[in-house]
Computed example of a mutant assay.
Amino acid sequence: MKKMLLAATAVLALGAPAFAQETLRIATEGAYAPWNFLNDNGEPAGFEIDLGNAICETAGLTCEWILNDWDSIIPNLLAGNYDLIMAGMSITDERLATIDFSQNYFPPDPSRFVAAPGSDLDFSALSGARIGVQSGTMQAGYAEANLAEGNTIVSFSTADQNMADLMAGNIDTILADGAYLDPVVNASNGAIEYYGEDVLIGDGVAAGMRKNEAELKAQIDAALDMLKADGTVDALIAQWFDGMGPFFTE
């Protein structure tokens, strides 16, 4: 499994960490802009990287970033290969059966359908459609549970592969997070557009962790409380999501 480690030294703002380790190992996909991606130097960047580093600074920890493919990101958390997931992951009942989450740091984000202009699909009652989703996402789970009858659900390892097949005409539509789709649609010069009603799934985006990690959960939530209260979270959302928000401050 390909991994990339990147350490960022944090200021010990809160004194000695309550977390048993002084280094917080955070896994991210590095392929889901603007949440997380690799910059021109091949280093993790994006909203969650900046927020994760701010969490470490506030909590008095050192961040170590680990790249992991989306499909195996939860299994490798459970195997102890890292302590936290920050990868555009929404809180869902299905995931809560296996892992725990911090409080959310991005509110529930409507999922949306995109397709080429002039699509003749009836998005109020999809039938005969090839629907692209990223495997292991809440959209994939929703599609399999609610859209599989009469349609073909096509799963892709990454969001980029999903979008490439839509552009190539190999699938008819994509169901994905609105916050991910917005910049893609805006940059497409009319090559794709939104269709149908928003689909509400999940309880917002948060950091995933193993169950029974009470000290870690408390420390992450305490840091997020501070970063929400001082406007840091809203400022990072506005920076990375084209002025979106504010959500956590008035």
Rank of each mutant, 00 (worst) to 15 (best):
K3T: 11
K3V: 11
M4H: 10
L5T: 06
T9D: 13
A13N: 13
Q21V: 00
E22K: 12
L24D: 02
T28K: 00
E29G: 09
E29S: 14
A33N: 05
A33D: 08
P34N: 11
N36Q: 09
N39D: 15
N41F: 06
A45E: 14
F47T: 09
I49C: 03
G52V: 10
I55D: 04
T58L: 00
E64Q: 13
I66E: 05
W70M: 01
S72N: 10
I74N: 03
I74T: 14
A79Y: 00
G80V: 11
N81T: 04
N81D: 14
I85Q: 05
A87M: 10
G88F: 11
G88Y: 08
R95M: 04
R95Q: 06
L96C: 14
F101S: 03
N104F: 12
F106W: 04
P107L: 10
P108M: 09
D109G: 05
R112G: 02
A115F: 06
A115R: 02
P117H: 10
P117E: 07
P117Q: 11
D120F: 00
L121A: 13
D122P: 13
D122R: 12
F123N: 08
F123E: 08
S127I: 00
V133E: 08
Q134W: 05
T137D: 04
T137E: 01
Q139W: 00
G141S: 11
G141V: 02
Y142Q: 07
A143M: 04
A145Y: 03
N146S: 08
L147E: 07
G150T: 12
T152V: 15
T152L: 14
F156M: 03
M163R: 10
M167Y: 13
A168M: 11
I174K: 07
I174E: 06
I174C: 04
L175A: 06
V185L: 02
N186S: 13
A191I: 01
I192R: 01
G202N: 07
G204R: 09
G204T: 12
G204N: 12
V205M: 13
K217N: 08
K217P: 06
Q219W: 01
A223R: 04
A223W: 01
M226G: 01
A229S: 14
G231A: 12
G231K: 08
T232R: 02
V233T: 11
D234Y: 05
Q239Y: 03
D242A: 15
D242Y: 12
E250T: 12
